[in-house]
Design a protein around this nucleic acid. Structure first.
Lengths: 219, 219, 219, 219
DNA sequence: GATGAATGAGCGTTCATTCAT
DNA sequence: AATGAATGAACGCTCATTCAT
């Protein structure tokens, strides 16, 4: 299996997530991808463009997955569940990539940041839309919609910091739990989601490094 | 007013928070503090020690404030409220410092990271203790205590990303709201906190840059 | 018409003359010749050998043309006129190549410079011979033969810097004028060249890029 | 004797003149100036700015010296003699700097080239002015004024290529000879300059490396 | 206390060249 | 004949840090 852009992105995400973009040298990047640092420039125009390609792919998929979740129902509670589930699922499945996309916005030059920030804003607006409509039609109840949105997003994003594919909890459990927390926060009535399959199966990005092996059936 | 360590820390936090530690040069630090970069070494042993001093002060105060909140009552719900209130209050009042302390753990060398990580762990254990005891005595109800803890902390930490002292919401309102979200998540009964003054007035660290002017009473 | 060595040389001369040898990359060379930079190595052994081939062709032709001019008469004044005419004609017709051959001697490695310098010296000796013999037999009169030679050569070489095939002056006019300046400098009597056709029609080298279109007969 | 900008310029001129700007590395520059390459950046903003400072100083002095020569008389023949004398004197005294200023115009970025080219044009216009006025008032006679100007300048500039301070000819002799060639080319009458002291004593620029020791009186 | 000068190491990037295809 | 992929070396430049003044 030869080197390709995906492998370079994986190596980059791995290093950017742990050391940070600025603290990662391109010689390190090359070494992690198994190539000479000069060769890296056959795959990517510059260190920043490498970051941009990673972030764009990530944000594109977040928007796509979130939008799809919203299209699956007109019911605010179900939309919310789908969106939270998508957010948590994506974040847990693409932990490092998601972290890089979140943390390294500041590393972008003025030439690239606005574009990426616009994608991020577009993604966040999905949450704002659902919450606003749900509150308007009386499906959600909270004292402050904005704070609820920020808290919900932050909570879900935090999954990137602790989720382990080989850990105690399966992804579906985490998704379920976060949806239930969201319901509590927004005072969604019990049973509103009974029988509804809102769990979204996330895609793994090409840039996401291979996760640790899931727990074997030790029995 | 001449230059002192506090001013250097403020300048450093301001830059570390926006550019990141690795992307901030010591000439920039000097310029931001109004001194020559060589002079900076009279105030601080090295760039990393500057970061360490900022992080230690920050974590120390977080632990102190959180511990104090726990000592104010033996009631789990009240302890939780105090702790959340302290966390949110501190984070909102020391936004940039808190962000640096969170983000830049990875920038530390192996010589310093364990010490700082230990402080962070100690702080997080305050949350674990409260939740665990509260669950044990039946004050809280949730399917997974660990996820609840992680979600609550992440939520509160996120305040650093959006709170504005001159914004729509006063700090007390935010603290109240986050306590109420925590109660919902942990199914704390309504009225449990009625009449209890759990709002903690946070201290501002010397390292925290001056915030934007609070909104004038234009009335 | 496919790519061949001449085309590569033309591209090289064009770039070497404007950017200089050291500042011209091999990818630029390839692009200018319409081929991949790796393919370039099928036509030339290395970047330096490309320069050597250009310079050798150039100096060979200068020597050939100059020598031929000298063989056309035994009269010093006529020899001088022929040599100047050849020099100016060649330089004007092969502007860029001549410039490269002059400027980039310094770019050669110790392995190649002596060879090329020897050719240059051989060419310059043609001027020295004519002047020396002319002075000896009393055809020329000047206070310093060496300075006269250097001035005459430099003057003629300078034509490469300003001559335009589509400009105000036809090449023959320039050749005539430079011969007449040489005569003045060396105090050659008026009428010495009357009726003598000393104008040399120069050859264009394969390495010389196509000149701008000569002025059309708008009449 | 400490390092200063002049020493850096000297080192730079020495290398730029022999290897060319593009072929000279900043580590070489540092070594030639006796400092670390990083230290070089305390004296100069960038490699290009170093070249610019050299060229500007050079062209400024050429213009100053040439203009001064023109101001010394209203007589075209005398003005011409002064200008040629200044040109040759300056070029011989600042051989390497003059060569760099001439050759390396092409090495400048688009940001700096126009400024330097404007200075060069201003200098060349001094020659054009003198020749044009002299021709108008009948002091000079030639078939083409433009070619005469170009030839005269090129001739004088060429002095940089061969003059040796410790050589056979003293500078004054060279200046005299070049003035006399100019007079022949422009058909200035004999004796027009008799008794006139047109020889200009040139200044040596700070950027010009120390010349070889003048010949000792070995007797 | 404060700074300009200095440096070795490292930065992101480009270089001329090679080679399997 | 032609090229995409590859590389070690070098590029111009900035880094955190030291030190004499």
């Amino acid at each position: 299996m030869s080197v390709n852009l995906g492998k370079v992105q994986q190596a980059a995400v791995s290093l950017f997530a742990t050391r940070g973009f600025a603290a990662t040298g391109i010689r390190e990047l090359g070494a992690a991808a198994g190539i000479n640092s000069a060769t890296l420039y056959h795959y990517v125009g510059s260190k920043e463009e490498l970051l941009v390609s990673i972030m764009r792919d990530c944000l594109d998929e977040m928007i796509r997955s979130g939008s799809e979740a919203l299209r699956r129902s007109a019911e605010p509670a179900i939309q919310l569940a789908g969106l939270i589930s998508s957010h948590v699922g994506f974040t847990a499945t693409n932990q490092l990539t998601a972290r890089v996309a979140e943390y390294e916005m500041r590393a972008l030059s003025e030439a690239h940041r606005p574009t990426m920030q616009a994608l991020r804003d577009e993604y966040e607006s999905l949450f704002a839309q659902v919450l606003e409509r749900g509150a308007r039609v009386g499906a959600f109840s909270t004292e402050d919609l904005t704070m609820a949105r920020l808290a919900l997003m932050e909570m879900g994003t935090g999954v990137a910091h602790w989720f382990r594919a080989d850990g105690r909890l399966r992804l579906e459990e985490v998704q379920q739990y976060f949806v239930s927390m969201a319901c509590r926060i927004l005072a969604v009535e019990d049973g509103e989601l009974d029988g509804v399959d809102f769990v979204v199966a996330p895609r793994r990005l090409a840039s996401e490094p291979d996760p640790p092996q899931p727990r074997a059936n030790v029995s």
